[in-house]
Amino acid sequence: MASADQVSLTAPHAPHARAVEAFNRVLPEIKHAVIASRHGWDVHEPKMWSRAAGLSDEKLTTFTVEDDLVEIRTGVVSYGTILFGKVRIPAVNDELGEGFIHVRIHDPPNQGEEDVMFHSIFTMEGKRDADGHPHLWRAIQVKDEPLEFFNE
């Protein structure tokens, strides 16, 4: 699997038609992963999905690719293209502002969108303060959180 130093990502930009098709191909998997991640983290570290506290799974996953995929970055690797997407969660708009998830998918070469695969959702695990203590767990990002390479 590629690492951040091996992949040159494009600058963040609005999604083009092919990216919309690719993300739509795996949308059910993305929604399933959001729900599974939230349920799993709620057992171990409820802070991770705290911005979705009180939302049903259905409400949390009301996003669509056409309306809510707001930014992408791509990187070509020997085994295809990695696509990173910033997806707005319409049900989250709190004191931190709008909420977004960062999603990674993979598009192998030469098959169109038929073989696009969901890879993962970014979770910020225990970001540390100046003293080295973990203080921030966040699956729902703020608008200004840059869409960066991740391997989760």
Rank of each mutant, 00 (worst) to 15 (best):
S3Q: 10
S3H: 12
A4N: 10
L9I: 09
T10G: 02
T10E: 01
A11P: 07
A14I: 06
P15D: 02
P15Q: 01
A17T: 13
A17W: 08
E21H: 09
E21D: 13
N24H: 04
V26Y: 09
V26M: 07
V26C: 09
P28Q: 04
I30V: 15
V34R: 01
S37E: 13
S37G: 15
R38T: 06
R38F: 13
H39C: 05
H39F: 02
D42L: 07
M48A: 15
M48P: 01
M48W: 00
W49A: 03
L55A: 06
D57F: 09
L60K: 02
T61P: 02
T61Y: 00
T62Y: 00
T62R: 04
T64G: 10
D67A: 11
D67E: 12
D68K: 01
G75I: 05
V76Q: 10
S78P: 08
Y79L: 12
Y79H: 08
Y79N: 10
T81R: 07
L83R: 02
F84N: 04
G85H: 07
V87Q: 01
R88K: 15
P90L: 09
P90W: 09
P90K: 03
N93C: 15
D94E: 11
L96W: 14
F100Y: 15
H102S: 03
V103K: 02
V103H: 03
V103N: 01
R104A: 08
I105K: 08
I105R: 07
H106L: 08
D107E: 14
N110V: 04
N110M: 14
Q111L: 12
Q111C: 11
G112W: 06
G112D: 07
E114C: 10
D115E: 11
D115V: 07
V116W: 07
M117A: 10
M117H: 08
I121W: 07
I121H: 02
I121P: 02
F122C: 14
G126R: 08
A130I: 11
D131C: 02
G132Y: 04
H133R: 07
L136G: 00
W137M: 01
R138L: 06
I140A: 02
D144F: 14
E145Q: 14
L147A: 12
L147M: 09
F149V: 05
F149Q: 06
F150A: 03
E152K: 11
E152Y: 08
